[in-house]
Amino acid sequence: MMNKGHTKEEYLERLWEMKEKEQVSVRDLEEAMASDFDRKFIEELSMDGLVVFTDGESNIGLTVDGESQARQIIRAHRIGERLLFDVFGEEFEKGACEFEHTKTIELVDGICTLLGHPRNCPHGMPIPEGDCCLRLAKTTNNAVVSLVEMEIGQSTRVAYIESRDDHRMHKLNGLQIRPGVLIRLHQRYPCYVVECEGGNIALDDNIAASIRVWSNSPHDQPQQKHLKNNQKVRSRWQKLLRIGHRSG
């Protein structure tokens, strides 16, 4: 048996999604909820002042209060999806469904900030903005940053692409710039050049900015360079010592 509070939230969530698709009729809601549909719940939501019927009970919409509640649920759900998708790669729907019921706005905002204020969920649906997005809150270390904030020569994994343009996503995807792949920034000026899966790609600034990457990736190239330099120094010393031995 479903938790009653949760079920109401499912209704609010569906109604938000209907708004995105510009659907208004109760029938659409019925279709979206499928077997979970129960007229009783919408009556209750109406009594709570969260939804309102129009057009003689055949159409339904969110009130201002209902909309603000739905907004939080949707935001938590989609941020949750983003988090799970970016961290684990798949199977994000289930976890996100649980996460959407969190009542702590700070928690959602915290994750949002950590992920660099993503604009879209992995399905490509828009994530409603939170206070943190408007303030563009930045912790000392966002886990996900834009590619443009990377250092030249640094390699990192792509977290997600911030774009709602399917066409552009498909093109980047074809060049293998997609979540999870290792990407390396070669140059910033006169235009961005990255290396990805063996190919070099030149990009517009705004496209480079839309590529979000993990900031503290273990594949930090400059560090490797350090190591190499150390080795070079060491081998030079060894050579010197050997020469010293011979001449001595």
Binding site: R168, K171, L172, L175, C191, V193, G199, N200, I201, A202, L203, D204, N206, I207
Partner: peptide, 9 residues
């Protein structure tokens, strides 16, 4: 037109 250009090796 967005600029995404693959560069040959």
């Amino acid at each position: 037109f967005v600029f995404i250009q693959e560069l040959p090796e």
